[in-house]
Design a binder for these strands. Structure first.
Length: 283
DNA sequence: CTTACGGCCTGGGTGC
DNA sequence: TGCACCCAGGCCGTAA
């Protein structure tokens, strides 16, 4: 499912119920998406959740260990394409493909459901935090104009691919790159290095606007996404490009087109977002 | 170093 | 109804 706005929405929901809770038991189903299942089973029961944060598309739980003397650690959850992290009553029926059940000390249960299992879970030591999370690029909402420009400067990759690269910006995915490029009137096939300062300025503003609006509306529910309470978002109603092939552009009425860029479906308005010279191979 | 591409996994939609 | 095929918001490993 999720990109930055969806993960942010989930995190905001979990933040209302998880901090202070102790994990009393853990039950796992399929474990091929977990880096080290035995470590989870050894360390999570008895530990207490202190904070819930987002880093790019990662949900980061800070854990205080069961043993007094041991160091606190991080529990990372990535929702992949179809992951859901939801709290529920333990006696409520679990949906299919629910592969992790965390019993909490208030009688509730935190559950991870993931049809395709492209998500991941892992424990990360505090001392390894920077080596792992530090590889990710700028937060696209917090980046200043100077940072935004320098992150893309000199990159030969298509702008769409560069925006999707988590080492450049953390948290953007296919929906919000298309929505941002539409708003900034930039064709997804253009090379990042060829964008003018004016282009980049519009792009940064578009990214910030789109992400803020999406967070405000609780994210986009296209197929599987729900928030921490199990409810869908509403930003899909405001999509201007994504999955609107053949429908009129909200600015000029031209039919939205779909092409493949960086192996991903990319939706754009052929009139508002002019193709680069030299077409499909590049520029 | 950077960029491009196939693969992972399951399910939903479409067209014959 | 059945079946083949395409598509899907993620990222990782490999090759060029």
């Amino acid at each position: 499912m999720p990109e930055l706005p969806e993960v942010e929405t989930v995190v905001q929901g979990l933040r209302r119920v998880l901090p202070g809770r102790r994990v009393v038991a853990l039950r796992l189903g399929k474990t091929d998406f977990i880096e080290n299942p035995a470590e989870l089973e050894a360390r999570l029961p008895g530990s207490r959740i202190s904070t819930v944060r987002r880093h790019g598309k990662f949900i980061v739980l800070q854990m205080e260990p069961a043993a007094r003397a041991a160091d606190s650690f991080l529990f990372l959850v990535h929702l992949g394409m179809t992951g859901r992290l939801v709290t529920a009553a333990p006696d409520a029926p679990a949906p299919p493909h629910t592969h992790a059940f965390f019993s909490l000390d208030n009688g509730r249960e935190l559950r991870y459901t993931d049809i395709r299992r492209f998500g991941s879970m892992r424990i990360l030591e505090e001392k390894n935090r920077e080596a792992t999370l530090g590889k990710l690029g700028l937060d696209p909402i917090e980046a200043t104009e100077v940072q935004f420009r320098s992150a893309l400067r000199g990159r030969r990759a298509r702008i769409k691919a560069a925006l999707l690269d988590q080492r450049v910006f953390r948290g953007l995915g296919n929906i919000y790159t298309d929505e941002s490029l539409w708003r900034a009137r930039i064709h997804p096939m253009r090379r990042a290095a060829n964008l003018s300062d004016a282009d980049l300025r519009r792009l940064r503003r578009a990214v910030r606007h789109v992400l803020a609006a999406a967070i405000r509306l609780g994210g986009s529910s296209v197929s599987d996404y729900v928030n921490a309470e199990g409810n869908p978002g509403e930003f899909q109603l405001r999509h201007r490009a994504y999955q609107r092939k053949g429908k009129p552009c909200h600015r000029c009425g031209t039919a939205i087109e779909r092409i493949l860029v960086a192996g991903r479906s990319s939706y754009f308005c052929p009139r508002c977002q002019r193709a680069p010279r030299g077409d499909r191979s590049g520029q």
